[in-house]
Amino acid sequence: MEALIAKNITKRYSNHTALDNVSLSIPSQSIFGLLGPNGAGKTTMIRIINQIIDADEGEVLINGKKLSPEHISIIGYLPEERGLYKKMKVGEQLVYLGQLRNLTRKEAILRSKAWTKKLGIYEWWDKKVEDLSKGMAQKIQFISTVLHEPKLIILDEPFSGFDPVNANLIKEEIFELRDKGSTIIFSTHRMESVEELCDHIALINNSKLILEGSKKDIKHSYKSNTYIVEHQGALNGSLPDSFKVLDNNLLHENFYKSIVKIAGETSPNELLKSLVAVTEVHSFVEKIPSISEIFISKVGGNK
């Protein structure tokens, strides 16, 4: 079941195209990473899903239904450019933002109190936002995003400006929300957090979708049949021709770390057999590319 399907979205501005025929399908209850360098079109995509701007072509379906104002109450959005009313009190502000997402006043008060207690900022309920530290303001922004228990949570660069403690806290909350049934779209250009959080990713570059799928599949398809071997005793060119040693490092006395690529259809077991014959194998691991490497190879290659 797909929580969100975007079909052939195109958005043009007078002097450039922000999105060019981009299609996404975001599985329900996944954490979906929307990746791309700055200016690739991520924020445009997110604004279209939030109905802040309209797509010129294409359509967005949420749970199979065409995007419409009624979806506002099931979407939670934490924009990259985010803030709060500085002169408003914490409680009032959360209740107001909850009401804008169609909660009743009573319900909004109840949930705001529960959340502020959970994140340990309840004692600030009657304080003005301008009196809060940046970290506390960030917690409030996060609460306001998830207050109405949205089915679809959209976080645009959620960790930019968060201190590590808060970032971790938010990560835990994100996992919890996913487990409770929410789908999370997570836009970023910082790859470390993607590796950790996302199960699906899409890579946008220069307004075009260049990669989409589950993290596992993508990594798999970018495998280059390369293995990392730690061994005692040098290889000294004693491997058959179908195996190519890309790298050979002496770690300490007679102890090596080599990177070996398998050419052709030969299986890893064959490689292991050949290795065992010439050296003492201590570890044998397939080299899987990181998202960051894939990202750089895809984006860099396009330039």
Binding site: Q51, I52, Y77, G83, L97, L100
Partner: peptide, 10 residues
């Protein structure tokens, strides 16, 4: 104060 994008998403 950058609250505006949150508001206009609702």
């Amino acid at each position: 104060s950058k609250i505006v994008e949150v508001i206009i998403s609702t």
